[in-house]
Design a protein around this nucleic acid. Structure first.
Lengths: 343, 343
DNA sequence: TTGAAAGCGCTAACAC
DNA sequence: GTGTTAGCGCTTTCAA
């Protein structure tokens, strides 16, 4: 393991100038075939590798891509972020990029992190997750001309012509979930989601609505005043089922909510809840296909997180390689339904 | 947002030389108080931040710490790695380090990744997870003098005098789990684990064994020929319970195994399994306190992952700052038992 | 205590 | 097609 082989060593050994070595490596088409071969042979022989710090200083490119790792996961839905990070890291390696991690709370905290990072390690780009209405992060980066992609649409700009993004078609997911329930004979299907105004939540609700509308059925008791957690899911499910005895199935905007709903749906009998809803079989479908869904047999909508990640990275790599036209590229991927015992 | 404020700009504005600026920042004690103040004021005013690439070129330190993100998690136990990564990132930031991600399969794959990384981004250190007997990674790094810490003991070197490490006392965890079950009146308690020879597995089994030995009870039907997954857990639990009708509780080496055991323990009646073990209430305790454990009400041993991560990082930072004596430091942290419905 | 000089390893520009 | 020059921003000598 020879330490610190520099371009000068290679040049000397190959009997060429340092610049020719650099060219053979970075602009091979400008070097005569024979020379190139000789140089590359010496590179192999000596085990030369470029020093990124030196290159970065010269070119201003770090080949680092920064991504946030979520602070203290919800626990159930957390796995999505981690699968994404893993996919990113994997694809990045194939493009000779590396993923740099940071943490932050809230848009402004994350913007502060951008600023820090940009001033220090100078990542070439950022990958953002969980875009939302009035997302300050995207504006900040755009204003400064920092390249980035988002996992999530630019919700406040429905044209999507703002910046490159990759997203999963949530409406298609709940649509499929709802159709699946219809095909199993359910006719009154409720939805458990979040308050109106969250892009993701509205999108997922829309799929359920339109699937029902499509077959001429009305939306059955929609409940949206809830946080994304198990207890609210349980509470919401109970309210919904108590209020409308016809409901036999629930589509949920997340596995957390679905898990709460399942507590109610699988409750052993009418005496379970003091308020007392009658016990009946209720099908439940979740969203995200988390490990918990798999463990408890919850039917759930699965996002192709790996593909999202690799697409994000490729979009970025393409753009960083100068292949960026004026128009940002974007991609809407279809989810799939993983059917299990719960519905 | 002035772009690219260099040390020269600061020097000019403060009326000192570039070197004095560098000193004021890096070796404040060597600069007169008044000068230092003036320089720092200008730094703030101009928004100067050191350029890491330039600094790295000069000092050879990147302030990057590399860590592996696991390829395709088991799904249930995966959350441990992610919580660890998160903790690492968080603590790293406070020490002005950043976490760089990589992926790899197997020891040799990871060693190849070390080599790549060291040749390119030159991380100052590595953080390794999941040490095991005959771990080739630690040797490779040691031979090359690359600083690193491990989450996990050096299993093949029980003295632990090999390299800095942080670990959780697994035996203490299963010991506590077993005592808990004893206190609830269980007298015949089985163990579900992995084949002998895995450091982690042996450690966890040992805690169960010694807790029983301590109160003069024998180990009840130990089953270790199994992979770490739900189906094997289910199979092992069934075999164990069928073979010893006295067993009323199971301590498991992971939540995956415990989940499988729970399928058996919660089976609705004697007819459930064709082979037919009689239905009886069986308590189950898992290990890792994953989101799945929380979701299904599984009592589980919780590792203080956040502390492990911050300890790892501080050990490293201390060492990188030159505070390393000859003897590596290490830390064995106690886990805690999270009691839920399953036991 | 402060300043001047040198150079880390690389590549963009230009000359040959 | 190849070599020479210069300099990215910083810190480690060493001299003032």
């Amino acid at each position: 393991m020879a330490d610190k082989v520099t371009i000068a060593d290679v040049a000397r050994a190959a009997g060429v100038s340092r610049q020719t070595v650099s060219n053979a490596l970075n602009t091979p088409e400008v070097v005569r075939e024979e020379t190139r071969r000789r140089v590359l042979d010496v590179v192999d022989e000596l085990g030369y590798r470029v020093n990124h710090a030196a290159r970065q200083m010269r070119t201003g490119r770090s080949r680092l891509i920064a991504a946030r790792i979520d602070p203290e996961q919800d626990g159930i839905n957390g796995s999505v972020g981690d699968r994404f990070l893993h996919g990113l890291t994997q694809t990045a390696a194939t493009e000779d990029y590396r993923v740099l991690l940071y943490t932050a709370h809230g848009d402004d905290g994350e913007i502060a992190a951008f600023d820090d990072l940009l001033g220090a390690h100078e990542p070439d780009a950022f990958v953002l997750m969980a875009t939302h209405h009035g997302d300050r992060r995207t504006n900040w980066l755009t204003e400064r001309g920092v390249p980035f992609v988002t996992f999530g649409r630019p919700w406040s700009d429905p044209d999507g012509a703002n910046h490159p993004w990759v997203d999963v078609d949530g409406a298609a997911g709940t649509d499929a979930a709802t159709r699946h329930l219809l095909s199993r004979g359910h006719r009154r299907i409720g939805f458990l989601g979040w308050p109106e105004g969250s892009g993701v939540g509205d999108d997922r609700r829309e799929g359920w609505r339109r699937a029902l509308a499509d077959v001429g059925l009305g939306t059955a008791g929609l409940f949206t005043e809830t946080e994304d957690d198990v207890a609210p899911g349980e509470h919401a499910a109970r309210t919904l089922l108590d209020g409308d005895p016809e409901i036999t199935a629930l589509v949920c905007a997340s596995d957390s909510l679905a898990l709460g709903a399942l507590h109610v749906a699988r409750a052993p009998g009418p005496a379970w809840h003091a308020g007392g809803h009658s016990h009946r079989p209720v099908a439940v479908v979740g969203f995200d296909d988390t490990p918990v869904a798999k463990a408890i047999g919850l039917t759930s909508v699965r996002q192709p997180i790996g593909e999202v990640a690799s697409s994000c990275l490729r979009l970025l790599a393409h753009r960083l390689a100068g292949g960026a036209g004026a128009s940002p590229e974007y991609l809407l991927l279809p989810p799939s339904l993983v059917v299990r015992a719960s519905g």
